[in-house]
Simulated scan of single mutants.
Amino acid sequence: MKQEGTVTALQTGGLTFLFVFSTTLAYLIGPLAKEAGSDGWICIVLGAVAGTALAIPPLSFALRRPTAYLGSFGERIVGKPVHKCILFLTSTFYLHLAAYILREFTDFFVPSFLKETPPVAVAILVLTAAAFLAQVGVSGSFRFAQGCFLVIGLFFLLKPLFFVPYLDTPIWREFARIHDWKTLWKQTYGIIPWYGELTMLAYIAPLFASRRKIRAAVWIGSMAGTYILLTEFLLIVLFFGPKLAGALSYPALDLTGFVHLGDFLRNMNALIVSIWFMGYFVKLSVVFAVGTLLFSEMLGVRDPKPLTAPLGALVVCFSLVLARNPVELAGYFDASWATYALAVEGLAYVYPLVSWARGRAGRRPASPSA
């Protein structure tokens, strides 16, 4: 590939920032408030730190070979059969994730804004745009993220200021104590793989130009996105309470009904949906691009571009049959997604662990002959 060393630390931090809160903001906060209540902010912090830490060791290992993709040299570490199996499972996971994100979007956008439009048409249009961006390569998603994250970050940084006059509430003291350790662990476990999806960065290490700054950029971007999640979660629970927040389908969107900018902007729903869509599209694009790249490496195809159209069609079809309704989709996620995601994300650890084991075996002194 001819995109080596084109992604800067700023672009990496910007994409990480959008990646960790785009879909999470829309689909995680409501269920988290319902299950964990005021303990949810602790779940977010613990899940963010653990999930980001999960992604760093494979990335550090991949950065040791800055000119070769892990999908190319990995077979020399673990053997061709194991390597092909890891690439297949990981590429399938990211394509599956792309279908999941696409389905979440159509379930939200079509009933709210495009009631007369068939969901399949919306899915095709959105995925087509993501596929065109994938044609540019994974680095195209990073450049797009750089253009979006400053605007999005500034908006969410200033948004809490509009709520300051309304924050005189006794519920603040509920955030200072832990109510249910079992629920705290369960919800934290469910958040970790949302951040652990960043293990995908290990498979695209040659794209990074400032390799010494990449890990710091990932941490800064992840924690900045976590700040957005924390402020949104706290505002939602303070305004609606845990029970009502858990009953609302999109509490982050409902919260904006309390904010208006004088006579200029009486309802911010359209604005926040537009901004959220940019972050959502960045995540969909990079997930689909990485899934396509890994699938092409598994097949031994040097150029993934010919695969974008058929894999895009597969993602659209899968998104439509993934579940019969949003309730079933959410039930599937609550039941098994966290364990499935962590298992696949953990496959990136096979390469550094096998390399480490071989290194120790090579340094072991030979036993003296009798």
Rank of each mutant, 00 (worst) to 15 (best):
G241A: 05
G241N: 01
K243S: 13
K243P: 05
K243I: 10
L244A: 12
L244H: 07
L248I: 04
S249Q: 13
S249I: 13
P251H: 11
L253W: 11
D254A: 14
L255Q: 02
L255S: 00
T256Q: 10
G257E: 11
V259Q: 03
V259C: 00
H260G: 02
H260T: 05
L261T: 00
L261V: 10
G262K: 02
D263Q: 10
D263G: 08
F264N: 08
L265P: 02
L265I: 09
R266K: 15
N267S: 15
M268C: 15
A270N: 15
A270H: 15
A270Q: 15
I272K: 15
I272Y: 15
V273Y: 06
V273C: 10
S274H: 08
I275E: 09
I275G: 06
W276C: 05
W276G: 10
F277G: 06
F277M: 13
M278D: 07
M278C: 14
M278I: 14
G279N: 10
G279W: 11
V282C: 14
V282R: 09
L284T: 06
L284R: 02
L284Q: 05
S285Y: 04
V286L: 04
V287L: 07
V287S: 02
A289V: 06
A289I: 07
V290D: 01
T292N: 07
T292S: 09
L293T: 03
F295T: 07
E297I: 10
E297H: 14
M298I: 11
L299I: 08
L299W: 08
L299V: 08
G300Q: 04
G300A: 05
V301P: 03
R302A: 10
R302N: 03
R302V: 06
D303V: 08
P304K: 03
K305D: 03
P306D: 13
L307P: 00
L307Y: 01
T308N: 04
T308V: 09
T308H: 03
A309Q: 03
A309T: 06
A309F: 02
P310A: 08
L311A: 04
L311N: 00
A313G: 12
F318K: 06
F318E: 14
L320H: 10
L320R: 09
A323K: 06
R324W: 14
N325A: 13
N325F: 11
N325C: 11
P326A: 06
Y332A: 10
F333P: 02
F333T: 12
D334R: 11
A335H: 14
S336N: 13
W337V: 06
A338S: 14
L342I: 05
L342E: 03
A343N: 04
V344R: 04
E345K: 04
E345P: 04
G346K: 01
L347Y: 00
A348T: 06
A348R: 01
Y349I: 01
Y351N: 09
P352S: 15
P352M: 14
V354R: 01
V354Q: 03
V354L: 08
S355F: 13
W356T: 13
W356V: 12
A357H: 05
A357D: 07
A357E: 07
R358K: 14
R360D: 15
A361I: 04
A361S: 07
